[in-house]
Design a protein around this nucleic acid. Structure first.
Ligand code: SF4
Ligand code: SF4
Lengths: 150, 150
DNA sequence: TCTAATTAGGATAACAATAGTCCTATTTTC
DNA sequence: GAAAATAGGACTATTGTTATCCTAATTAGA
């Protein structure tokens, strides 16, 4: 129900990959084969990221994508919103108010919940997805113990 | 993408209604007409809530549903899980590991994100959805200002 | 005992969203 | 000019959500 779409997951994987290989442009094909993803479908994610300015691209042979900005400034929410707007937990959060909106006493508490959810994703950054740096590793371990994750 | 299903939303609305009318059993029909929801579809939600023990039911004429437990002990997560298991933000969180699982460096950071999301929903209770009590109203106002909600 | 109101739940249809593919155009380096 | 790459429209397949329909079982009360 809160499942991230594959398009989003592919986007995060690609961004993670680009973060590691910052420097020369990386082709969609390289990312796809390296991560075992569908090239065609991954391309859609990359093109969305491009549109939102999270990556920049270079066409032609020797072309590819590279990150715009640093991993500690790019939030998961940035990536999610780049590939698909819908982060509203209920209709009235993003789209126009629903038919029940006038007399709905769920709307207000839901907006609080929405803010909390938003915070989780805006406060998690690409850097937190980096491949086990020391600080990150420590944080992970700590958090896992705290939350009883294997 | 993080949209709650209607089944979940109906369940929360129903629970909210039951919380107000705690005491005598309330029929699905009354809830449906009172809230302007489809009786048939709402019934599915109520039956799921029943299965999970969040409400108890009485069949026959004069029957209906009533809350089990107090609103401050029933979390939104309880309700979500009652109507639909899938709360995993990625496949490997709930179902069996996906094909990429072995070499996936997204899995670990995702599990942290999952915990944060879970926390939001396990730490929000039916009582927080109550119809504007004084304390709740204050909290709402406070939180809204803090988060820039209209 | 019969009736009406109610919950329980299976089956299924209608609709929407997601996932994935295919094809063509454009750009760029060599 | 050829090859490799991005850009993106169009389309299909699959899955998930939403909703309805129908029937059975239960229970209070006349
Ligand atoms: S919370 Fe209320 S107003 Fe918002 S979508 Fe749900 S029913 Fe409509
Ligand atoms: S995070 Fe990795 S292991 Fe988990 S579902 Fe996504 S690709 Fe598979």
């Amino acid at each position: 129900m809160f499942r991230l779409s594959k398009k989003t997951e592919y986007a995060i994987l690609a961004m993670q990959y680009l973060a590691e290989k910052s420097g020369e442009p990386v082709s969609a094909k390289e990312i796809a084969t390296s991560l075992g993803l569908s090239f065609e479908f991954l391309s859609k994610s990359l093109q969305s990221l491009m549109k939102s300015g999270l990556v920049s691209s270079q066409q032609g042979i020797k072309g590819g994508y590279h990150l715009v900005g640093t991993p500690d400034m790019i939030s998961v929410m940035d990536i999610i919103q780049a590939v698909s707007e819908n982060v509203g937990i209920v209709e009235c959060m993003t789209e126009s108010d629903c038919s029940r909106s006038g007399s709905c006493n769920l709307k207000d508490p839901m907006s609080i919940l929405q803010s909390k959810v938003n915070e989780v994703f805006t406060q998690t950054f690409l850097a937190d997805f980096a491949n086990e740096t020391e600080s990150n590793q420590f944080f992970n371990k700590d958090f896992k113990i705290l939350n009883g994750i294997n």
